[in-house]
Amino acid sequence: MKHLTDTDLHLLSDQLQAMRRSVLDEIRGASLDIEATLQPQDHEVRTHADEAEVERLGDVRFAEIEIDQARLLDIEQAQQRMAVGRYGVCIDCGDPIPRERLMAQATAIRCAACQAAAEDRLRR
């Protein structure tokens, strides 16, 4: 974290907090959508196709919530690393993650080279 100024850390902390609020809002919104979709509409005639569409939309919303929960975990872990002084340090090589990379992706856990290597390993 020594390569980051106090101003950088403040900006990144604010960015993480804004990201966290946004993800929580998305989770709440998706949850409300699921509830509304699953509520039976007494005045509507429903076909099997309608029921299948409701189920499909529910599945999509649940998948979106899972993605948002993973993003929330990444954000919270970045905030924790910041709190303990390990923010901005690559988990693989231990080198500082460049400021520009963190400004673009505040939850980054690896420098660009190590991230590319990790993605390479996943593709194999």
Rank of each mutant, 00 (worst) to 15 (best):
E35M: 09
S31H: 05
R56Y: 06
Q115A: 08
Q39M: 10
Y87C: 00
A112H: 05
Q79W: 00
D95T: 13
M19T: 02
Q41A: 08
A116F: 05
T47I: 15
V54I: 09
D14W: 00
E64T: 10
D74P: 14
M82P: 00
G88I: 11
Q15L: 11
A52G: 14
D8E: 15
T47H: 10
L72I: 11
M82H: 02
R20T: 04
D33H: 06
R21F: 04
E100N: 15
T47E: 11
E55Y: 03
R46K: 03
F62W: 08
E35D: 12
A83F: 01
L11G: 02
L24E: 13
H48C: 04
R101Q: 03
R71A: 12
R56E: 10
M82K: 12
H10A: 05
C111H: 07
H10W: 02
K2H: 07
R71K: 09
D92S: 12
I97G: 01
G29C: 10
D59K: 10
A18Q: 13
L16F: 14
D59S: 11
E66H: 08
Q115W: 01
L11N: 11
L73R: 13
R123Q: 12
G85W: 03
T5P: 03
G94D: 02
C90M: 05
R121C: 05
M19Q: 12
L73K: 14
Q39S: 10
H43Q: 10
D68E: 10
A78N: 00
V89Y: 06
L122W: 08
M19N: 09
D92E: 12
R121G: 06
E55F: 11
Q17H: 08
H10T: 13
C93A: 15
Q39N: 05
G85P: 00
S31G: 04
I109M: 13
M19A: 13
L102K: 06
R86D: 09
Q17L: 02
C93V: 13
R28I: 14
L57G: 09
R46P: 03
